[in-house]
Design a binder for these strands. Structure first.
Lengths: 113, 113
DNA sequence: CGCAACTGCAACCGTCAGGTTGCAGTTACG
DNA sequence: CGTAACTGCAACCTGACGGTTGCAGTTGCG
């Protein structure tokens, strides 16, 4: 479940998958139920659910004869924190470079390599 | 630049693109420079840069005869906040459903549709 | 001034992801 | 107890994506 960043982002990179996540965000649902509300086949839904489950964005739970899936908000929160951290690091580095550029140093501070 | 959520996530869904972003996070660089540090052609880099620029994750800047690109941390931060918000909403809804299930109501509260 | 280096555009290619249909197996509802 | 509904697996198709090469056009460094 320690899915690498690009992988979980890729999972979130498909519109249909977001459709599914949105519906699941409203409450637990089975693959068949989802297939009934979306314009794709049950099998396609199944593949998407598998992808989402692999990166920890949803969990499955046997309920009676059907398998219901639920959205895991915590997983999305974790991703959000990770992205935020990275974004901040970019900003601070950018700022440091700008400071170097302002301050008249010995040579021209070139950062292209 | 109001790139929809799945689109910007898709942009972040490619490993090579993360390579590029990481390098750009260290400081502004040109396409050729990036191509020299990564195991792909300059043209491939160019396509990736275009994708990243379209979703606002990087910006371009003419510097001398070359075009340098810089990572936009704010964009990533915005995405992070959006994801966090959604994740929280999932959790609260889940909680409400659980409450309903605990409380002995008139009928069995079924949320599969 | 001339050459080297960077950019932009276009054509082309292989792979894989998203989708479909079809079928077989289980399991709860009536 | 029978049948309807849900699941799982497999084969197959197609388009888009990540990658390549090739070429033409600028622009600045020595």
């Amino acid at each position: 479940m320690t899915a690498t960043l690009p992988v979980v982002c890729a999972a979130l990179g498909d519109p249909t998958r977001w459709e599914i996540l949105t519906r699941l965000g409203e409450g637990p649902k089975s693959a068949s139920t989802l297939a009934r509300m979306l314009p794709v086949s049950r099998q396609a839904i199944g593949k998407h659910l598998e992808v989402l489950r692999e990166v920890g964005l949803i969990e499955s739970e046997q309920r009676g004869r059907e398998v219901v899936y639920l959205a895991v908000g915590a997983r999305l929160g974790a991703l959000a924190r990770e992205l935020d951290r990275i974004g901040r690091s970019w900003e601070t580095r950018l700022l440091r470079l700008k400071e170097l550029a302002e301050r008249p140093g010995p040579a021209a501070p070139e950062a292209s390599e």
